[in-house]
Amino acid sequence: MLKRLNEIKVGETGLIKKVEGEGLLRRRLFDMGVTPGATVYLRKKAPLGDPLEITIRGYELTLRKTEAALVVLEMEESK
């Protein structure tokens, strides 16, 4: 099942399928390790619901929901 990173729940894990967007922003995501094939774990949301904190490639990264919406995930079929 495909979902966007801004749509998943805290505690869920997914595999990055595609990173949309363009230019500097997209490159920045790549440089920070947000590339297709990487596993993402949604760790928490900030007190006001945005930005998100994710674990990727063994470290903590924070990004906003607008940026997270560019990341398409293949969800783990757990249940």
């Binding site: 922003l25 920045r28 995501l29 920070m32 903590e60 990264l61 990004l63």
Partner: peptide, 9 residues
């Protein structure tokens, strides 16, 4: 501006 930042330990 986008907000993409590492949260250090």
């Amino acid at each position: 501006a986008p907000f993409i930042m590492e949260l250090p330990e």
